[in-house]
């Protein structure tokens, strides 16, 4: 049950953002990320405007600023990959570090590039968070279908998210059962050899695989029992209203303006 909460990225609130057509939200999110990533390095003013826009949407959607900020930190560890930029890009030397035999120096150009990569990434993550926090998964799938993502792929995704919770529950039970039986004796070292541990993990994986396979057979039976004959049909009730078009236009205008500002100011 606890897992279900972790799975739920959607926050049910009565808000005009939640109410928008999911297509609009998907398109605006993608355009937004695209636009942020197109901003030049060091366009701090434009970055700030984007952040303000993100916060504004979070407030209108009644999500609260805290939620978006907290979740947006997930991708930051990847920053480690880019930190080398600070020391490898040529530019004015800011400071020098002594690392054993080497001396490495940080450049101002490197620092600007590194921080820009980080900020753009952080803003993009927040947009993606807003999308899933205000759009139910089934609506998201409908939007993908409307946006001409192939039907087979969307159907697989639909089955996947439906059974993700079920299988994560199953895997949690397996892990718990392993944990319950992993005792260490007072003298011996716990856990057995590497191969043995790998084998236990592999057995669990194999077990989960077979259970999943059997489950998919039962699901197939349940589908056939209700008339499934190879073609998956759903009701897809979304219709673009005037306010959806208006929201789309507004977002597009805002993104264009920020892009223009970012390019002229820097």
């Amino acid at each position: 049950m606890m897992l279900h909460n972790a799975l739920d990225r959607y926050h049910d609130r009565p808000s005009s953002i939640h109410d928008l057509d999911p297509r609009v939200k998907v398109v605006v999110t993608l355009l937004g990320i695209f636009s942020v990533l197109l901003l030049p390095d060091g366009a701090w003013g434009a970055y700030f405007l984007v952040w303000c826009a993100v916060l504004a949407v979070a407030l209108v959607a009644r999500l609260g600023v805290g939620l978006v900020l907290r979740r947006s930190l997930v991708a930051l560890p990847f920053a480690l990959v880019a930190i080398t930029l600070v020391f490898t890009l040529p530019g004015r030397t800011l400071f020098t570090l002594q690392l054993g035999a080497w001396e490495i120096s940080a450049s101002d150009a490197g620092l600007v590039r590194f921080s820009s990569v980080l900020v753009r990434s952080w803003l993009s993550v927040q947009m993606a968070i807003l999308l899933v926090a205000t759009t139910r998964i089934p609506d998201l799938l409908h939007a993908l279908r409307h946006l001409h993502v192939p039907a087979l792929l969307v159907t697989i995704l639909a089955f996947m998210v439906r059974y993700l919770a079920v299988l994560l529950d199953e895997v949690t039970r397996l892990l718990r059962a392993r944990q319950a039986r992993s005792a260490a004796s007072a003298q011996g070292k716990a856990g057995g050899s590497l191969l043995w541990r790998a084998r236990v993990a592999g057995n669990m994986t194999g077990q989960l695989f077979l259970r999943s396979l059997e489950r998919s057979d039962r699901i197939y039976n349940a589908m056939v029992a209700r008339g499934f004959r190879g073609q998956y049909v759903t009701i897809n009730p979304h219709r673009m209203r005037r306010r959806d078009w208006m929201a789309l236009g507004l977002a597009f205008a805002a993104l264009t303006m920020i892009q223009w500002l970012g390019r002229t100011l820097s």
């Binding site: 439906r162 008339g227 499934f228």
Partner: peptide, 30 residues
């Protein structure tokens, strides 16, 4: 298949659609 309504033992196998609505609509749609 339209005349015999088969309800399986494990409802998790029977409810395979994302929402309740889509699941109940599956039979009539097909």
């Amino acid at each position: 298949r339209a005349r015999v309504g088969l309800v399986f033992q494990n409802p998790d196998d029977q409810l395979f659609s994302p929402t309740v609505y889509e699941d109940v609509a599956f039979g009539p749609l097909h």
